[in-house]
């Protein structure tokens, strides 16, 4: 009971701070409603929407819009150019981006997973099975249904992460990319859509996407390890994506407030409950 009340207390405190901050900002910004847009990596978009909803509920004068996935690079570019207020990326910014004025802050991590539709009975996979699937040697699931692979573009961070799992997988993936008729999903949402939609499809995703967007996808145990944030945080599950918030050199107060909110216990709570952990 005590812990609950403590927790509630912390929540109440956070909320009060937020409201106070909002009031402050609102008063400094005048009576007109302020808005900004969040874009960038698809892995973060669902979570950003939840955070934005939470945030705007406390700050009704602020309107936040999440734009469809621009990818990490596109997001950085857009935030530097001022086309959006805040970018979420799944990689740290590059030196060149930094020189353009981009500023990053890591706000969460999420297990990098292989996902499959919840309609499937498959719950686990091994890296050798993955290699066989990408090599085209394993073409059916145990129930006899065909295996279909969903790939990401070669330059995407997800493709790079898959390749890192093992040299076999790296080789097999190169072969898979050359096969005709293989599905390439341009961003995380497309990939999640395809995995949900295509029977027997398997492909990379993140627990953040699955949880925040309430996807009908199952994150598979890999080599016998459960892809939970706890396992990932402990290193028992070795694959995870780092998530950053990036702003341009000139950032508005509301963005600052939103960033603060994300890093606040309230924001952290949202992250925790959506397959992410704060490092």
């Amino acid at each position: 009971m005590r812990s609950v009340s403590k927790h509630r207390g912390a929540l109440r405190r956070g909320r009060a701070c937020a409201i106070a901050l909002a009031l402050l900002l609102g008063s400094s910004g005048g009576a007109a409603a302020e808005e900004f847009r969040i874009g960038g990596t698809g892995s973060a978009l669902g979570t950003m929407q939840l955070l934005a909803a939470e945030f705007t509920a406390a700050n009704p004068d602020i309107r936040i819009t999440t734009v469809p996935s621009l990818g990490s690079g596109g997001g950085v570019k857009a935030v530097v150019a001022g086309a959006i207020g805040l970018a979420a990326t799944s990689r740290p910014i590059s030196e060149r981006e930094r020189k353009l004025g981009a500023v990053e802050v890591e706000y969460a991590r999420t297990p990098f997973v292989f996902a499959i539709s919840t309609k499937s009975k498959v719950t686990a996979i091994t890296s050798s099975e993955l290699a066989a699937i990408y090599a085209g040697k394993k073409v059916t699931w145990p129930d006899g249904s065909p295996v279909r692979i969903v790939l990401r573009p070669a330059s995407d961070i997800d493709t790079e992460m898959v390749k890192r799992i093992s040299p076999d997988i790296r080789r097999a993936l190169a072969a898979a990319e050359a096969r005709p008729g293989v599905r390439f999903s341009v961003n995380d949402q497309d990939a999640a859509d395809d995995l949900e939609r295509i029977p027997g499809a398997i492909g990379p995703s993140s627990l953040a996407v699955i949880a925040s967007e309430k996807r009908a996808l199952r994150a598979l145990k890999l080599d016998g390890r459960e892809p939970t944030p706890a396992n990932a945080a402990s290193g028992a599950y070795p694959y995870h994506k780092r998530l950053f918030l990036v702003t341009g050199a000139r950032r508005s107060a509301v963005v600052e407030r939103f960033v603060a909110f994300v890093r606040s216990p309230a924001g952290r709570k949202v992250l925790d409950s959506n397959g992410q952990w704060v490092p």
């Binding site: 621009l70 990818g71 596109g74 997001g75 857009a78 150019a81 573009p153």
Partner: peptide, 19 residues
């Protein structure tokens, strides 16, 4: 489809050129 931010959809642009 995305008149404002298309120039930032770098992945899509690349894919378009490639595919």
């Amino acid at each position: 489809a995305n008149p404002e931010l298309w120039i930032y959809q770098l992945r899509r642009l690349e894919e378009l050129l490639l595919r």
